[in-house]
Design a protein around this nucleic acid. Structure first.
Lengths: 210, 210, 210, 210
DNA sequence: TATGAATGAGATTTCATTCAT
DNA sequence: TATGAATGAAATCTCATTCAT
């Protein structure tokens, strides 16, 4: 199902491609954070990556490829770090741990998240689809865990509400990235996680003995 | 604190300016929805507005002015439609009505909201500040109402949590704009408002006789 | 049948388009004569035409459009100047006059012919087809006249040979353009026409009486 | 007058140079046929030749060298295959044989001829001169043979016409290369040779007893 | 006021050539 | 000798902005 939208390179050495793309991505993220995708030029990207414009184009075909590489990498990291969630036990505690992992991930990659959400609509159609699919998968992880908790009788939640609750978690996390500067006046990350989690579970947890 | 970032026009007739800018904004929103700010050209904006590129530049100074006009207009509309909130009574019912008004506003201006949040970082610094200030004012409305309710003893909520809850409301509304296509599979607007409101109040409402 | 491969312009004033394209074509021919199509840059073309690169692109879409405009114009001139041939009388004298007109045309437009034949394969497929069609039409004019002469009993020539003879005439004329510098050591235009015409007719004219 | 425009190579082994250049030329002709000289990249030339871009540049100095090699090789082959002409006997039959040899040569190397005539103006000045000199030598072969025939009383032809007739033969042959696809509808090679030869001699041969 | 032709800085992309391995 | 990654000058094309009419 990995319909990975391939980015063509004219360089043959796979390891080198890996290394150079790493440089490109790092440079691009630094740049996009400051100026966004459209205001960053390919020359700047090349320079930030540490090589010439010609070399940049040995590893990508178009400027949009850079954006795709950035988005793809972020989701790969996300996927990697969230991979544990799928195996969490279907309990309130498991759910809390999953949310905690996710929020800390957002905090670490806050800049990257902002870049991705603000620029991804500039991706070519096929690449956008692929990225959206990854985003859906992320929501899906929480959806599965919530479903498992509900089935295990840990949550009083209707099937209908599960989907929304999953979105809820995901969005609430992203909010930390997008409004960090405002929110950090009021909360630190731990406080924020605690508040949001309580807030969520207050509505969902089965009272101990109804 | 009205730092209204003025947009200069070489036309003198105030009414005409009003009318032309209306055309510009409407055209621009239609365009930005499809292609985003950067991918839309000034020629396209002029055409979509119904006049020539020369005329466009009689009413704005730079392309960024168009984006500013769009953002500014949206907030004017928001401010107008939310003006009642400030006067709501400090009760759960008052809070519910305020939230309802806000969610319906987001639903009506969903496209505009999406455009604004995706593109506003392209505004020049000063204009961006002004827009962010308006955004803060919006959150402030709910903040004030929540505070009033808390003071009136209608809500069990710490001072510290009020700010976050206000953000919560604002974000939850915007989520409807950003994820409409996914969410509409599960909920219609009324259902969504109800669910979100319940969810929020579950955590905040003082149990009847706790 | 005029499948004229349209060249799009973003300028609306038809007369202006006409005028500017005239400038473009003249400048381009001057340039292409010296350096050929590929070695001429769009900036040089603009400069030679007498305006800025931006203006050039108001009147064409791509560099290839310039080549097409050049080729098209040459053939228009050719077609115009050969239009009389179609009405020539079906006699040896008529044929001679037609050949004379054609050779003088080639002499006048020698540079243009060279440009066209050396560069036309760089045209995009559709435009190339259109140009080739015009070339075929030119050969067709002589074909028709030769056929008429044969039918009128003025020439002893098999049907099969007519096609080749028409090609012959066309090529022999082009040779004057392509090898001018060599041939002019030996002949002036009048002498060349006379020699070639004699040569051709020697083989084709019916001996006065058996 | 062998001004052989030397192509420098950094490889010492003469045989290897020979072999590699053969590969380069063959690949280049294939490529130039399809896309022309300017549209073919050095990378493509290297690939088509069967080795890397680095290796290509061990055997040439510039891209234009490739074009020169192609042109030079064609003329070497031409010279080789026409070498017999110089020794032909000064009779009509000898002339006919010479023409026959030449036409068949053109037919064999048709693609190469087309490439050469369409691209040779892209050669650097010195190389172009050298190639033109070879072309002149080819015409010279026929010139000499025609002169010999005239002196032997086999042809009624003025001195002045000999030069033109030689050009005639050369061009008529090239016409087969350039317009093959049109002409093959009407003639096969044998028929074409016969027709052209008759045509030519009709004007030149002394009537048997005139 | 309205128009749209003109401008040219600047963006993306290509590709001949070099050079370290 | 062979390789192919690196380079950067240069090419094409776009588009925000101006200004004469």
């Amino acid at each position: 199902m990995e319909l990975k939208h391939e980015v063509k390179s004219s360089v043959k050495d796979g390891e080198l491609i890996e290394k150079r793309r790493e440089q490109i991505i790092q440079g691009a993220v630094r740049l996009f954070k400051q100026k966004g995708f459209h205001r960053s030029t390919t020359r700047e990207i090349a320079k930030e990556a540490g090589f010439s414009i010609g070399t940049l184009y040995e590893y990508i075909r178009t400027k949009e490829d850079v954006l795709y590489l950035v988005c793809d990498t972020i989701y790969d990291e996300v996927q990697h770090r969230l991979s544990g969630i799928a195996d969490e036990e279907a309990t309130i505690e498991g759910l809390k741990r999953a949310i905690d992992v996710y929020y800390r991930l957002v905090d670490d990659l806050a800049d990257e998240f902002v870049v991705m959400y603000q620029e991804s609509k500039s991706l070519p159609k096929k690449a956008l689809e692929y990225v959206l699919e990854k985003e859906r998968a992320m929501t899906g992880l929480f959806n599965a865990l919530l479903t498992a908790c509900a089935e295990a009788g840990e949550l009083r939640i209707t099937d209908k509400s599960i989907g929304l609750a999953a979105h809820h978690i995901v969005i609430q996390g992203q909010m930390w990235a997008f409004r960090r500067w405002e929110l950090q006046h009021m909360y630190d990350l731990d406080g924020y996680i605690e508040f949001q989690t309580d807030q969520l579970l207050n509505g969902l947890v089965k009272p101990v003995q109804g």
